[in-house]
Simulated scan of single mutants.
Amino acid sequence: MTTVYAIVNQKGGVGKTTTAINIAAYTALAGARTLLIDLDPQGNATSGLGINRKSLEYSTYEVLVEGHPLLESLVETPITGLSLLPATIDLAGAELELMPKIGRDSYLREAIEPATDHFDLIFIDAPPSLGILTVNALVAAEGLIIPLQAEFYALEGISQLLRTIELVRQRLNPKLEIAKVILTMVDSRTRLSQQVADEVRQFLGDKVSAIEVPRNVRLSEAPSHGLPIALYDPRSRGALAYKKIAEEIYGQTRTRSRPRHATS
């Protein structure tokens, strides 16, 4: 049984793509057949995994807009067991091209359906907006992973996202739920980071992961080398945090998908 997660936050610069790449990498290293879908026209998840966007024959654009089969559009990554549906700048035009189409909110879900037998986990790196592409991610997903930067306006920024999630749940995808909120770029030396963390936990409760991602220069460097942190610097503080978060998410997924046995 495949579980689909969307990594979402309409605010940029919160570590969304870093979270998507590294959680996907660590779940693959843990043995899960994993797919990462780059749904962001900036293509940072694609370049962050060392894929040359100029050399691509097919991308998320061709899958969504032209109906090219998703399984025929995948590329392999430096992590064994992790496949990628890459993105190019062409995806920037998909919002306008999908707008007049019937069922425009469900194109990604329909594209993913034939791939569910091939993967245990599918992660979608959504763009930093609340447009059609992000709505497609919300409709396709069962669980949401929300990276939240430990800064003063963190909760103010998430309120609009929560309203959008509720609308999608009511009208398009009743199975949608928040799986995990991850505090990113946490500086444990500052009082502000701790105050924000406390507020977020009070507001969102046990949805917030107990594991916080520290502000870590090695996490920032890894994408420029086209590598996830698991390959670039597996002993760094950022790597250890994402490894634990990935284990947490993968463990929850396996527990939820495990068949129930009758008891005598």
Rank of each mutant, 00 (worst) to 15 (best):
L167F: 12
S73M: 01
L96W: 07
K207N: 03
L39Q: 06
I79N: 04
L204M: 15
R189G: 08
L39I: 01
K243E: 15
E110F: 00
T164C: 08
L176M: 07
A230G: 04
G93M: 10
T46H: 13
Y232S: 02
E151D: 15
P69V: 03
Q170T: 11
Q42D: 11
I211G: 01
N173I: 03
H225D: 00
V135T: 15
E151M: 10
T60F: 06
V75A: 09
L155M: 14
V8H: 06
Y153T: 05
D38R: 08
I249K: 04
S159Y: 05
A87G: 10
P174L: 12
D105K: 10
Q160W: 00
I165Q: 10
E66T: 12
L98K: 07
E166L: 12
Q42R: 14
L39N: 12
E248F: 02
K16G: 01
E221D: 14
P234Y: 03
A6C: 08
H261E: 12
I182S: 08
E97W: 07
P41L: 13
Y232T: 00
T164I: 11
V196Q: 02
T164L: 14
L219H: 09
L144Y: 04
I249N: 03
L82N: 00
D40G: 11
K207F: 02
A210S: 05
R109Y: 15
D120N: 07
V217C: 00
L162K: 09
L108S: 13
T34L: 05
P128M: 04
G67F: 08
L219M: 13
I245R: 00
R163T: 15
I145D: 00
K175Q: 14
V208P: 03
A150Q: 02
G67N: 07
R33M: 01
V217M: 01
Q149V: 01
A239W: 00
I229G: 01
T46W: 11
L49M: 09
L192W: 01
D117E: 15
I122L: 11
T190C: 02
Y250Q: 14
S257V: 14
T60V: 13
A140Q: 11
V168Y: 13
I122H: 10
H118F: 02
G31A: 12
E113R: 11
D198N: 14
A150H: 03
L98G: 07
I229Q: 03
Y26C: 04
L64P: 02
I178S: 00
L71A: 04
F119M: 05
V217T: 01
V4R: 05
N52S: 13
G15N: 05
G93F: 11
L219K: 03
V208G: 04
Q194R: 15
E57H: 11
E221M: 07
